[in-house]
Nucleic acid binder design. Structure first.
Lengths: 189, 189
DNA sequence: GGCATTTGCCTACACCCTTTAGGTAGCCGC
DNA sequence: GCGGCTACCTAAAGGGTGTAGGCAAATGCC
């Protein structure tokens, strides 16, 4: 009886790949087991349950995304930083749609706090260092940026901008321009 | 053998309520059948399959949302229209989280075109009549608005702004202020 | 190197959801 | 009040989740 060498780590990584190939909500314990040529029940020694698998994939995606963002942000400021950060999100979502969907998976607060969620918030805030925004407008701006990035990427992924001019790349660039302009001229309450 | 009086119409409406109560992806043919005290197989005379049910709920949600938006937009212009439109989305999502999730359900292009998708696009564009934006910037702005509304609402629903100051209502109002300011001072390319 | 322990994967099973096929009971028009 | 349509049924197959218990491969100990 040959051993497949399963570990939680390997399962989660394979789960993330599976998500990118077939979509995050098609990730099942059964499908993952098939991929390792193993019975589904065998995975339950490494994963508590299906929810656990999805949570771990989500945390993996969040961590990867935070790593990329940190790299992109290093040594940049102002609009450069804004554009780089935005591109990280968008590129990640396009390269890894399943993982991106996983990153939006609803986590319970403690799990989220233990993961890379905090780093994301810190980095978004870091971008604003290049602009002159005091609290509470800084928080409003953080939320706005998060909303635009997430919203745009998720509409784009679901095909919203596919069959109409101008192409999505152009819109994306202009949206980033607009956000930069907005942050430089943030309205008074 | 008493008859429950099932129709596609009633099933879809009940499905939408079910979605609001337990979440869109917990909407199953079985759960819906239980709600009518009927066997799951019986629903297949009224629904092609589970996907069909979800699609119909999505179309219902899109139509409801478009109706509300049309009502809110009538007789308003400029920032008034912008704020009213934004509130329609947000309020609908908070009153009917399941339906809102349904509205984001991926539809195939023909189905989407046959539904209320077109009205949504037209209305977003109508808001911009109050601002001085020529093409292609108008399209960029439409996409930006859609992204912000969708993104904000979806982050809010997933609990992103729950446990931090300032509260989400305040941020929402300031985000709308900011969008208004941005549309009035849209940057040149 | 032989033996015990641990652990990795197995089979078997129970339960739920989906979907098809074919049957029966209620209701409507005549 | 009878025929026929329609609404709902039972039965069954297929697949996903998850638990319990078993055997065999790897590991550790002397």
């Amino acid at each position: 009886m040959a051993r497949a060498g399963l570990t939680t780590e390997r399962l989660v990584r394979a789960g993330a790949e599976l998500a990118d190939e077939v979509g995050f909500d098609q990730v099942t314990v059964s499908a993952l087991a098939r991929r390792f040529d193993v019975k589904a029940a065998s995975l339950y020694s490494h994963l508590r349950n299906s929810q656990d698998l999805k949570t771990r994939i989500a945390l993996l995606a969040l961590a990867e995304l935070a790593d990329r963002a940190a790299l992109a942000l290093a040594g940049r400021a102002g609009k450069d930083a804004l554009a780089a950060f935005a591109d990280v999100y968008r590129d990640y979502a396009r390269e890894h749609p399943g993982r991106y969907a996983a990153a939006r998976f609803r986590l319970d607060p403690e799990t989220a706090a233990a993961g890379a969620g905090v780093r994301h918030a810190q980095m978004t805030r870091a971008i604003l260092r290049g602009y002159d925004l005091a609290e509470p407008d800084q928080t409003h701006a953080v939320r706005l940026l998060g909303s635009v990035f997430h919203g745009y990427v998720s509409l784009e992924l679901s095909g919203g901008f596919d069959h109409s001019a101008p192409d999505s790349d152009t819109s994306w660039a202009r949206v980033v321009d607009a956000l930069d302009a907005l942050l430089r001229n943030w309205p008074a309450p």
